[in-house]
């Protein structure tokens, strides 16, 4: 359904007046997402995961390379997407504060994509809020009066509202408490089974992938590298090995008596 072919992309850095050079982020990147498939994208911080997500959403155009959706270019020569395609691809961003207008109420945020299709109603929106464990009180609360995790779930509800074909989830469940996180993951699994929804699941928490991702990529040297089994014996790309080695232990280890400094 979605194909990234030989993508190169970078940014100019520094202030407007500083001598700026282009800082390469993606070089020769390839990635495919099949219909109804859940594809995980892992990687170190700053490795280009969100950048790749923005390209898949058509928010930026690659410096070079092709992005195909159902076999046709994702954007036209002006960088615009067909309205149907735009509706078919939704996103939940890493930073929910930046992704919502602070004065919008819970209802307005979630209803926005539905109004285009004339499907918005308070009952429908309340249903969507309930799916992500949000109480109906939030329908009338402005976004800037919600907790970080409430706002994040509101963004998830909005992205899922139109039952799109592909959802880019950029570190979307990181800031949720573990019970809520488990329920949102279960909802995603259910939607995938019912609607054949596909996900590009960007995360740094490997623990979430088990039993969720069909295929996994890890950002290594400015491109996604596919890994057959992120939890298998390997050999693994060095980045993935390092991420795996850094998974924290499950339980507290016995600590030194209070007051004794280490090192």
């Amino acid at each position: 359904m979605m194909q990234l072919q030989d993508i190169h992309h970078g940014y100019r850095q520094g202030g407007i007046f500083s001598r700026s050079r282009r800082h390469p982020v993606l070089q020769g990147a390839r990635l495919t997402i099949g219909t109804g498939e859940c594809v995980a994208l892992l990687g170190r911080t700053g490795s280009g995961k969100s950048t790749l997500g923005r390209l898949v959403l058509g928010l930026e155009r690659p410096d070079a390379g092709r992005i195909l959706f159902d076999g046709a270019p994702l954007t036209d020569f002006r960088g615009r997407m067909a309205p149907a395609t735009r509706r078919a691809i939704q996103a939940v961003f890493q930073d929910p504060q930046a992704a919502t207008s602070p004065r919008f109420t819970g209802y307005e945020v979630v209803a926005e994509p539905l109004t285009v299709q004339g499907e918005a109603s308070r009952d429908r929106v309340a249903e969507l809020l309930a799916e992500v464990d949000l109480p109906p009180e939030l329908l009338d609360r402005p976004a800037h009066r919600m907790s970080g995790g409430q706002l994040q779930r509101l963004c998830i509800a909005r992205a899922l509202a139109t039952r799109p074909r592909l959802v880019v989830l950029d570190e979307a469940v990181n800031s949720l408490d573990l019970e809520t996180q488990a329920r949102v993951m279960a909802l995603l699994r259910r939607l995938r089974a019912q609607h054949g929804m596909a996900f590009l699941f960007v995360t740094h928490d490997l623990r979430l992938l088990r039993g969720f991702a069909d295929r996994s990529y890890v950002m290594q040297d400015r491109r996604p590298v596919e890994v057959a089994d992120p939890f298998g014996p390997g050999p693994l790309p060095p980045v993935l090995q390092a991420l795996r080695d850094a998974i924290l232990p499950e339980m507290p280890r016995p600590r030194l008596p209070a007051g004794r400094a280490v090192g």
Binding site: R44, Q94, E171, N174, H204, L206, A246, V262, G263
Partner: peptide, 23 residues
């Protein structure tokens, strides 16, 4: 939530730093 957006390698490093600051 000082480490929610961090990859596990950086998270581990920051937690070491915080531990050192405390101890």
């Amino acid at each position: 939530e000082p480490t929610t957006d961090l990859d596990l390698v950086v998270q581990a490093r920051l937690l070491d730093l915080l531990e050192a600051l405390v101890q």
